[in-house]
Amino acid sequence: MSAVFAVERLKKSFGGLEVTRDVSLSMAKGDRIALIGPNGAGKTTFVNLVTGHLQPNSGRVLMGGEDISRFNPMRRVRAGLVRSFQVTRLFSEMTPEEHIGLAILQREGRSGRMAGSFRAMPQVMREMRNILETLNLSALATVPVGEIAYGQQRLLEIALALALRPKVLLLDEPAAGVPHSDTFLIENALAQLPDDLAVLMIEHDMDLVFRFAKRVIVLAAGEIIFDGSPQAVTEDPRVREAYLGSYVHASSAA
């Protein structure tokens, strides 16, 4: 069993509040995992701990067997661990073209160049067009991000992550804030992710979770209370209790 990514006994508390209690998990190539849990369960905190945006109190993070716990966030990205944000973080004055161009240059170690432009680099342009095309963003390539719809901004977040060619992708609620009628856009984008990429997606929309995930992990009060198949998750009594039945209603209504 070759784990591309693993977390061992991660712990974090803010003041007295234990937000992550002894979380361990591992992911293999091509995994499609949904991480679910009630609001405040510690899902985003988990991602922040893993990416190095927060320091855990204890525990280790490994990529391909290598301990990256002491890497700063930048080095973790270069090691292939890429995330998206629950609330989009994009450069509002820059265009999708510039976002993707910058990401490609960064991946290739050329973002520090002080002359020239990615527009004059044919292979960067080609890759950029391909990525934007895959995510249906070509028509918006030269519009400042501040002027495009939120749903499309969410797509660009995914495009940006892909341009970094990650080995492990952590998506924090990729459909948050997108009107329900448009979640299919996000779903289509998720379906296009490379097969060998390991993906962990945090999501509240259970329809999306059930269509996307082959494995579901449930986090409640900072602890993993379930890790198994999407079929089994609705049957689990602890999960039902944690959610007070709320999502079970949602999914049975769908």
């Binding site: 990416t51 945006h53 966030p73 930048m74 080095r75 990205v77 270069r78 890429v82 995330r83 944000f85 973080r89 994009l90 450069f91 509002s92 004055e93 820059m94 510039e98 161009g101 910058l102 990401a103 240059l105 960064q106 991946r107 050329r110 973002s111 520090g112 160049r113 002080m114 002359a115 020239g116 432009s117 990615f118 940006l160 970094l164």
Partner: peptide, 21 residues
Amino acid sequence: SPFGMLCRGIRQDPVRISAMG
């Protein structure tokens, strides 16, 4: 240049820049 673009990105969202590596 690419570096100029990187710096504009830093002004708009430094967290995103570090999340790009």
